[in-house]
Design a protein around this nucleic acid. Structure first.
Length: 479
DNA sequence: GAGTTTGAAACT
DNA sequence: CAGTTTCAAACTC
């Protein structure tokens, strides 16, 4: 039965943020994506490109073809795979082992086992998928990925064992300390939304994952790239690290050694209501950092530092002085925070504004684990090179880069021309723990190093337009 | 291991 | 932009 013709065997989902259609069918896998960098026609849907053999199509960059993999050998190394990253593998549809015909050609699989996608477990409910991306006609190329049934079949063994250890793996992974151990268990998002920890971390899903219908793999580079761009265009901070370490003294740990340094905070903060920021539901807690004024949590009891523990820099020093005399109640602190934040925001962007700017992106990439970060880091040199004088610095500070915020501070402080030195030491993201980037709260300051706060001097930032999209404006910046 | 809870992300 | 829904991880039993 050709399930592609069956209406009830298909589901189509329009991915609003990405502008893509993800269409699922019970029997086939299609990725149709007019992606940003597409220009690649891979293994095709024979219905769409009749007469073209799956192995005949060659991408612009990689050979697209098939190769044989023994059914019990799922762990070819990336080296073994060579450059054949783009291959027609989709694990979407888990086939029962009874469907397999090892004696036939079905054990000659189109397997995407390169790199971190090897040994990817099959996707039990995985549907065929069509991803169709179109963005205002920008893209003219398409990517077709035709799922080969045998591909799916061959993965089922791995899937079973993978599913078995799913929970253990998940816990283990998340107890880990880096992207190298990241995994996900996505079932519906196809690992193409920020729900997916791998996608959010800009890494491809790996054999550690137990996701279903995963499209976040080397095979779908174009699709992933397309959707990443979409996601990022919607929220420039979508892939920014959530925990940052602003520049400043390393001794800023406050009085409580159990608390994280005041400058290490979740960039957007959490929004916890019931967990009291004491469970891993809380992104701050999960990241091992205290809550900050950026948070909107209720009943914060974050053991790494309660919400009131971190104030915008404008108030931080004042607060330190206050702490020496005693602690504030939370209500007092909140009132205190609000007062100061509002006071600042009227005249110029708060430091969180600066950090929340899309410009964080260029610098983020430098801190993502290189082995797992799947895209070339954006140039941090660009950021630095923009800072040739105070004027351009300030502009860049707003429009481009978070570490330039710090650079701006120092420059304004010292009127120094050693921008690059400064910027390189400014904001360091210590961990990409929780990839979620939902809110960009413009009015609070969590980790900022506001020059205002230190000197009381009001900078000439208020006339600077709010944050443009990262890609566009950043690219337009003078270099 | 299944079911529930939680809060971020996505959607309307 | 606020409210709602979806999603996957965290958690509980």
């Amino acid at each position: 039965m050709d399930q592609r013709t069956s209406e009830d065997s298909q589901t189509k989902e329009f991915d609003g943020p990405t502008g893509c259609y993800i269409q699922s069918a019970a029997d086939d896998t299609h990725v149709h994506c007019a992606g940003a960098a597409a220009g690649v026609v891979m293994n095709h849907d024979p219905e769409m490109l009749p007469g073209v053999n799956q192995s005949q199509l060659v991408s612009n960059e990689y050979l697209v073809g098939t190769f044989e993999v023994p059914s019990d050998n799922m762990a070819l190394s990336d080296h073994q795979c060579g450059g054949m990253h783009r291959r027609n593998l989709f694990n979407e549809k888990a086939r029962t082992t009874s469907d397999m015909s090892p004696q036939s050609g079905s054990n000659l699989r189109h397997a995407n086992i390169c790199g971190d996608t090897y040994a990817k477990p099959p996707q039990p409910s995985a549907p065929a998928t069509i991803v169709s991306c179109s963005e205002k006609g920008r893209y003219s190329s398409e990517v077709y990925i035709h799922d080969d049934h045998s591909t799916q079949k061959t993965m089922s063994n791995a899937a079973e064992s993978s599913q078995e250890s799913h929970k253990k793996k998940r816990r283990k992974v998340q107890d880990g300390d880096g992207d190298s151990c990241r995994s996900c268990s996505c079932k519906k998002s196809k690992c193409l939304k920020l729900y997916c920890a791998c996608f959010a971390a800009k890494v491809y899903c790996s054999g550690l994952c137990s996701c279903q219908g995963c499209l976040n793999n080397h095979t779908n580079e174009e699709t992933v790239s397309c959707i990443r761009q979409r996601t990022e265009s919607r929220n420039p901070l979508a892939f920014a690290p959530t925990v940052t370490h602003a520049c400043g003294s390393g001794s800023d740990f406050g009085d409580d050694s159990n608390k994280t340094p005041a400058l290490v905070r979740h960039k957007r903060g959490c929004n916890c209501r019931k967990s009291s920021c004491l469970k891993k539901y809380c992104e701050c807690f999960q990241s091992g950092v205290g809550c900050s004024i950026s948070c909107r949590c209720q009943s914060c009891k974050n053991s790494f530092g309660k919400r009131e523990g971190v104030l915008p820099l404008a108030t931080e020093k004042m607060e330190k002085g206050a702490k020496a005399k005693g602690t504030h109640s939370k209500e007092d602190k909140l009132a205190f925070d609000k007062q100061h934040v509002v006071g600042q925001s009227g005249d110029l962007p708060s430091t969180e504004n600066l950090f929340a700017a899309p410009s964080l992106e260029p610098c983020r990439s430098s801190i993502v684990h290189p082995s797992t970060y799947s895209e070339p880091p954006l140039s941090t040199t660009r950021c630095s090179s923009q800072l040739h004088n105070s004027q351009s610095l300030i502009k860049a500070d707003i429009l481009l880069s978070p570490f330039e915020t710090c650079a701006a501070e120092k420059i304004l402080k010292y009127n120094s021309s050693n921008i690059q030195e400064v910027s390189s030491s400014c904001i360091t993201s210590i961990k990409v723990v929780s990839p979620n980037k939902k809110r960009v709260s413009p009015l609070h300051t969590g980790i900022g190093l506001s020059p205002i706060g230190r000197s009381g001097r009001k900078l000439v930032l208020k006339s600077i337009p709010s944050f443009p999209s990262l890609t566009g404006d950043a690219d337009n910046e003078p270099r």
